[in-house]
Amino acid sequence: TTLTVNTQTYTFTSEEEAREFARRYGAKTIRKTNGTWEVHG
């Protein structure tokens, strides 16, 4: 199964959650914005 996250942004309140998600789905960018963490595919 392949998950494609081209134009979607996922927002997390903790860096740990964001990094775990990025690691699991191979997202390329993690960015902190206004106190939340954004993961970009």
Rank of each mutant, 00 (worst) to 15 (best):
T11P: 02
E15H: 04
T33F: 09
Q8G: 10
E16F: 07
E16Q: 10
T4S: 10
T11V: 13
Q8C: 10
A22K: 01
R23E: 12
E17W: 02
R31E: 09
T1N: 13
R31W: 07
T11W: 08
K32C: 11
V5Q: 14
R31H: 10
E20L: 05
V39L: 02
I30V: 10
A18K: 00
L3K: 05
F12N: 00
V5D: 13
R31F: 10
G35E: 05
T33S: 13
Y25N: 10
V5S: 13
S14E: 05
F12I: 00
Y10H: 10
T9Q: 05
F21P: 00
W37S: 00
G41L: 15
R31A: 08
L3R: 02
E38M: 05
E17D: 08
T9V: 15
T2C: 08
V39S: 01
K32G: 08
E38F: 05
G35A: 03
T4K: 09
S14A: 03
T11H: 08
V39H: 01
T7R: 05
K28A: 11
K32S: 06
G26K: 05
R23K: 12
T13E: 12
E17H: 04
T36W: 07
R23P: 00
K28L: 12
T1S: 13
W37I: 01
N6K: 06
T2A: 13
L3Y: 05
V39E: 00
I30G: 01
F12P: 00
S14M: 03
R31K: 13
G26V: 02
T36D: 05
E17V: 04
T4R: 07
T33V: 15
T1H: 12
Y25G: 02
E38K: 02
V39Q: 00
I30Q: 03
I30T: 06
R24V: 08
V5P: 15
Q8I: 12
T9G: 06
N6V: 13
K32E: 11
R19K: 12
E15F: 13
A22H: 01
F21S: 01
N6L: 15
T11F: 13
K28M: 13
E17F: 02
W37A: 00
Y10K: 07
T4L: 10
F21L: 01
E15A: 05
H40Q: 13
T13M: 08
T36F: 13
Y10N: 04
N34P: 02
H40Y: 14
T7N: 09
F21W: 07
R19C: 13
T1W: 06
V39D: 00
G26A: 04
K28V: 15
N6E: 13
T33N: 14
T7E: 08
I30E: 06
T13R: 08
T2E: 13
V39A: 02
R23Q: 10
Y10Q: 04
T7C: 12
R24P: 02
R23G: 06
A18Y: 01
K32M: 11
E17G: 03
Q8D: 08
N34Q: 04
G41Y: 15
I30C: 08
W37P: 01
G35D: 07
N6Q: 12
E38I: 12
Y25F: 11
N6W: 11
S14D: 08
T29C: 14
Y25W: 08
A22I: 03
K28N: 10
T36S: 08
V39N: 01
T7W: 11
S14R: 04
N6A: 13
N6H: 12
A18W: 01
A27F: 15
Y25L: 10
F21M: 03
T1P: 13
T36H: 13
A18L: 01
A22V: 03
R23F: 07
K28S: 14
Y10I: 07
A18S: 00
T36A: 09
T11R: 09
F21R: 01
Y25M: 12
E20I: 06
N6S: 11
G41M: 15
V39R: 00
G26R: 04
A18V: 00
E15I: 06
F12A: 00
K32Y: 15
Y25C: 10
G41P: 13
T4I: 13
T29M: 14
N6M: 13
A22L: 03
E16L: 08
G35I: 01
T33L: 11
T29W: 12
Q8T: 12
T1K: 05
F12L: 00
W37E: 00
T1C: 14
H40E: 13
S14I: 04
K28I: 14
T36E: 08
R31L: 13
V5H: 15
T36L: 15
T36P: 01
E38R: 02
E20W: 04
Y10D: 01
G35W: 01
T9P: 08
V5K: 07
E15Q: 04
L3F: 06
F21K: 01
F21A: 04
K32A: 09
Q8V: 13
G41Q: 10
E16G: 05
L3G: 14
L3T: 15
N6Y: 09
A27T: 06
R24W: 06
Y10M: 07
A18F: 01
T7Y: 13
A22Y: 03
K28G: 08
Q8L: 11
E38A: 05
E16A: 12
F12C: 07
E15M: 05
E16I: 09
G41H: 13
F21N: 01
F12E: 00
R31M: 10
R19H: 07
A18E: 00
G35F: 02
N34F: 02
I30K: 03
T7V: 11
T29Q: 06
Q8Y: 13
T4Q: 11
E15V: 04
E20M: 05
T29D: 09
Y25E: 05
T29P: 10
R23A: 10
I30L: 05
V5R: 03
Q8M: 12
G26P: 03
L3S: 14
